[in-house]
Nucleic acid binder design. Structure first.
Lengths: 204, 204
DNA sequence: GTCTATAACCTGATAGAC
DNA sequence: GTCTATCAGGTTATAGAC
């Protein structure tokens, strides 16, 4: 069977634009992005953006929804999981999240800062609240530590997983870790964080 | 003695502009901020911005340096501290950081996303790298856990402290915590995180 | 020092030829 | 479907009166 590699040239015009939009929006943020940048990145004319998508904003919303699903999807999987033990869920979440973030390191800072700069722009997109409150995961946390608000543990787990990627550019800029070291540390964290969470759950 | 309250009206024109710039830049980010917004927020004319500061960019850099100092200053204090035990340092850092972040909740997301959107714009500003590597704090971490890269612990401590403020808007938007609950949880975290870090250091 | 008016430029979007 | 040319509106920065 012949090799079948998807390269930019193979994509439809519409997909080329989306792909370019994903890249440029992520890199510069919505406000700093010019539609001309996206057109150039796609190797196409500016007018085509408005032909395929109605406006810069429409195109952005499309990209944004994708990114939010990718960022919050990993959490949702854990929340829907009604079978595994708390311990296993933590392991799964940490591993899945770190793997995803190694592929898309600047996803969190992008999504979170766009939400911050434009609060109320991305509403109802998140029934994640009820989902989380009523989840088996939250119940398991409450059973294990009835003295703690479940968010205390969720903040900590997510913080340990996500923060290195958010702060990454700063720490690399400061010469504290180079890229290969960073990747190695993140791999190590897949085993480290679950152990730490276990210790936290049993502390105090 | 008569009350002496600093209100906007008391400030010099220059300081009024800076104050407005701090607020608007933080709220909308550099790219989405129009100099008109700042002038309006300051209750002054647009032309005065260019009279006192040379350009939008110069004004922004001024604000940015302030914010970076505020965000990284808390860490620097711990790094310069050569007297306290590791345990005490963790307590100090966590408490100081959370107190500062309760006053300036959107400081981290602002600084980190501006650095991300414009990498290389704020260079040499951070001799934090060497400072951290050579710090007593790093040595103490290595002594306690020679098997771990000190950054593993620093990422985790900072993540637990800072992440709730970065993710805050999302979790509030999802109706997972309201503002008073959030503040209460953060107060609780000042005691919680040091205990957890202790448990982590002794785990494995 | 502070204002109004305006210059010079840039950006998103569209019209119309092919 | 794709392009070039252009419009309409908005943005930073400045000139010049007070």
């Amino acid at each position: 069977m012949a090799k079948r590699i998807k390269v930019a040239a193979d994509l439809s015009t519409e997909e080329k634009i989306k792909e370019a939009a994903r890249k440029v929006f992520q890199q510069k943020g919505y406000a700093a992005t010019r539609t001309r940048d996206i057109a150039e990145e796609a190797g196409l004319n500016l007018a085509l953006l408005n032909y395929y998508f109605r406006s810069k904003e429409k195109l952005f919303e499309l990209v944004m929804v994708e990114k939010m699903q990718k960022l919050f999807g990993v959490i949702a999987v854990i929340l829907y999981d009604t079978e595994n033990t708390l311990e296993t869920k933590v392991e799964l979440m940490v591993t899945n999240y770190i793997d995803m973030l190694l592929e898309h390191p600047d996803l969190p800072i992008f999504v979170l800062s766009e939400i911050r700069n434009n609060p109320g722009r991305f509403p109802g997109n998140l029934p994640l609240g009820d989902l989380m409150r009523n989840s088996r995961f939250a119940t398991q946390l409450r059973e294990k530590r009835p003295d703690l608000h479940p968010m205390q543990l969720i903040f900590s787990i997510l913080g340990m997983v996500v923060f290195p990627f958010i702060g990454g550019p700063v720490f690399e800029g400061a010469g504290l870790v180079d890229k290969p070291t960073f990747a190695r540390l993140m791999e190590e964290r897949k085993k480290l964080i679950p152990v730490w969470v276990k210790a936290m759950l049993e502390s105090g």
